[in-house]
Computed example of a mutant assay.
Amino acid sequence: MNTSVQVISNFQLTLAFIPVVVVLLMMLHWSLKAGFAVYALIRMLIQLLLVGYVLTTVFAAEQSWVVMLVMFIMVSAASWIALGTVQAQRRQLYPLAFLSILLGGGLTLMLVTQSVIGLSPWFEPRYMIPLAGMIFANAMNSISLAAERLSAELARNIDYLSARNEAFQAAFIPTINSMLAVGLVSLPGMMTGQILSGVSPITAAHYQIVVMCMIFGGSGLSIILFLWLAKARFS
């Protein structure tokens, strides 16, 4: 099996923007807000190019403190972004979101990297950082949904336990849907990347199963911790 990765030239990369330009032109034609979409595209380009250079440096350094610093920044950013759905309470809830993602996602990450995969060294950045990104990003989205639903339910004068249950179920919908759709509707990013790089589909499937369990556990624990910690703030 070919294990080499097809290199994408700059010219080939520009071809990927053809459908992007078509969509932007249609948005302009329909008098939609194309400006924000352009901003998102520019930000995406800058962020991905920057992270490419940063990760190259991090991978070359192979220092545990560098990896831990990167993950601390990831958790900090994820916690702030997650609370964008509850702007008025963002600062008050930030410590709760940070602790929930750190513990819920972090403990799951440690279990997977140290016991399931068995990284050597334990902080191997080529595994640790991408896996951490998957966990923290999904935990971020889950807490964002949980915070919005919890706030909305409590605003209707629903008792906390009922609001908590509604918030958990709403926040967990994307995770459940992804579990139901994987393999039938979509091949997830990690599995697709491994297959494209020449890894056996069976091996890629094993890794994806680990990833899906990791996301399920990390997101679920983060939601549970957030809702548990938030009780003192809302009760």
Rank of each mutant, 00 (worst) to 15 (best):
148 E>C: 07
198 G>F: 14
193 G>S: 05
177 N>C: 04
152 A>N: 13
165 N>K: 12
204 A>Q: 06
149 R>C: 04
164 R>H: 08
141 N>H: 13
146 A>I: 08
149 R>V: 04
197 S>N: 04
140 M>P: 09
202 I>N: 10
174 P>A: 08
205 A>L: 15
171 A>K: 05
193 G>V: 00
145 L>P: 07
158 I>P: 00
148 E>M: 05
180 L>F: 15
175 T>H: 07
174 P>C: 08
152 A>E: 11
156 R>H: 15
155 A>E: 10
176 I>K: 09
150 L>Q: 03
175 T>D: 01
156 R>V: 09
196 L>I: 15
168 F>W: 01
146 A>D: 08
139 A>F: 00
197 S>M: 12
167 A>F: 10
156 R>Q: 13
144 S>R: 09
162 S>T: 14
179 M>A: 11
175 T>N: 03
162 S>C: 06
173 I>M: 08
200 S>I: 02
162 S>K: 14
146 A>S: 13
192 T>A: 13
162 S>I: 03
176 I>W: 07
157 N>E: 15
188 P>F: 13
196 L>Q: 09
147 A>C: 04
157 N>Q: 13
167 A>L: 10
183 G>V: 06
149 R>S: 06
150 L>W: 03
190 M>V: 02
156 R>A: 09
153 E>T: 02
152 A>M: 07
171 A>R: 06
202 I>S: 10
171 A>Y: 01
198 G>Y: 13
168 F>K: 04
193 G>P: 03
148 E>G: 08
188 P>N: 15
170 A>Y: 13
157 N>Y: 11
148 E>A: 13
162 S>D: 15
166 E>R: 13
200 S>H: 14
151 S>Y: 09
192 T>F: 08
186 S>I: 00
153 E>H: 03
172 F>V: 01
184 L>I: 02
182 V>C: 07
167 A>V: 09
178 S>E: 03
204 A>M: 08
192 T>G: 11
160 Y>D: 01
170 A>N: 05
204 A>H: 10
205 A>H: 06
151 S>C: 05
184 L>K: 07
141 N>R: 02
154 L>Q: 01
167 A>T: 11
168 F>L: 14
140 M>E: 06
195 I>C: 03
197 S>H: 05
181 A>E: 06
153 E>S: 01
185 V>S: 06
163 A>V: 01
157 N>R: 13
189 G>S: 14
139 A>W: 01
187 L>R: 03
160 Y>Q: 04
174 P>V: 15
196 L>A: 15
178 S>Y: 10
188 P>Q: 15
140 M>K: 05
156 R>F: 07
166 E>G: 06
172 F>W: 05
140 M>N: 09
184 L>W: 12
162 S>A: 12
184 L>P: 00
150 L>M: 08
177 N>S: 09
186 S>T: 02
190 M>D: 07
166 E>Y: 03
157 N>C: 10
195 I>N: 04
147 A>M: 02
204 A>F: 09
170 A>F: 15
182 V>P: 04
168 F>N: 05
150 L>G: 05
160 Y>C: 00
164 R>A: 08
201 P>A: 01
179 M>G: 05
170 A>P: 00
197 S>D: 04
156 R>G: 11
201 P>G: 01
169 Q>P: 03
